[in-house]
């Protein structure tokens, strides 16, 4: 230790290019991260120019011909545009509402379970699906929906109802996908909300009990307000992703079956298929549209939240 050099003062004096050595060191620490974000996040943003080009692999990004807004025109005049936008937004909207409401509800109920052993057991089991990949959840859905051997058709048969070919009929899929998504995410969400509840001031509950509040009143006046900040944060973030469907859910669960596209195709699955077919220009136009609307949505939501309650705004 160099206690004799009074480094505190020395640091402030030794400036290189106007920066203290402390700041140079700190800057050096951020360097790997800066390089990473530049290459893998900012370069692709510039790569979005191919949305305005007729991209071919041979010509590359710089050599490909400019086509202006042709790619956007082609996409927005196709039938796909409405279908995938509607599906993406509708599923996301339903998921956001259900996640917030059911997550909070389950958390509040979990808070009412007073046995520690039971709470712990429920939490451990509820969190299980979160450790499963969408591939495995795909297997599980298949166990239930397989038309020949599936469990659901066995149950229908018990009631004398003829089995349904689930993987052909798109009408059932909004319900199936919503159920599967909630099944996978509800445990984790409610445990997050539960953690927020535990962080709420326990004295409030005691005071309310002394004042004679019943369970419902305590829940509405203490638990719900305790959860609102977290619900807002998570919802703003979710709104920002409203244009980004969970690729795993929409690709693995309907198993990429063409007959189901009317109700299962979202922007992300569409973009993936575009990549496979090599329609780079049009597909990145779709990607551009997706990112652009995403930014606007998150900024607007945040503005609205800021108006209502500045403390809950994200930035």
């Amino acid at each position: 230790m160099k206690t004799n050099t009074m480094p505190g003062r020395a640091l402030r004096k030794n400036r290189i290019l106007g920066l203290t050595s402390e700041n140079w060191w700190l800057l050096a620490l951020t360097l790997p991260g800066l390089i990473y974000f530049f290459i893998w996040h900012y370069l692709p943003m510039f790569g979005l120019v191919i949305a305005f080009k007729d991209y071919t692999y041979d010509a590359g990004i710089f050599g490909s011909e400019w086509v202006g807004f042709d790619n956007f025109k082609f996409f927005f005049t196709s039938n796909d545009a409405w279908r995938i936008t509607r599906n993406t937004v509708a599923y996301a909207a339903v998921f956001i509402v259900l996640t917030a409401v059911l997550g909070a509800l389950v958390a509040i109920l979990l808070n009412e379970v007073k046995s520690r052993a039971a709470t712990k057991a429920y939490q451990t089991i509820m969190i299980l699906p979160d450790f499963l990949s969408w591939v495995i959840v795909g297997f599980i859905t298949y166990i239930f929906l397989n038309p020949a051997e599936g469990v659901l058709n066995q149950v229908l048969a018990m009631f004398g109802v003829e089995g349904i070919d689930w993987y052909i009929n798109p009408n059932y899929w909004p319900y199936i996908l919503t159920f599967v998504n909630m099944w996978k995410t509800i445990g984790m969400t409610s445990i997050m909300y539960y953690a927020a509840l535990l962080g709420a001031d326990q004295q409030l509950y005691e005071a309310a009990t002394i004042d004679g509040a019943n369970g419902l009143q305590k829940c509405w006046h203490i638990s719900v307000p305790a959860l609102v900040p977290l619900m807002t944060t998570l919802s703003i973030l979710a709104v920002g992703r409203i244009f980004r469907g969970d690729f795993g859910l929409f690709y693995q669960i309907p198993r990429d079956v063409g007959a189901l596209y009317p109700t299962t195709d979202v922007i992300d699955t569409y973009v993936y298929r575009g990549l496979r077919q090599g329609d780079m220009g049009i597909t990145s136009a779709v990607g551009f549209f997706q990112s652009f609307v995403g930014v606007i949505l998150v900024v607007v939501t945040n503005m609205i939240v800021k108006k209502i309650d500045p403390d809950n705004a994200l930035f």
Binding site: G33, F37, I39, I61, D268, L275, S284, G287
Partner: peptide, 25 residues
């Protein structure tokens, strides 16, 4: 550089190039 770098990082949460440019890169 706290402010500019925080923004540099945070912005990637809001906006991205998406799959196709990343794939090409």
């Amino acid at each position: 550089f706290k402010k500019p770098i925080t923004f540099f990082v945070f912005f990637t949460m809001l906006f991205g190039g998406g799959l196709i440019p990343s794939y090409i890169l």
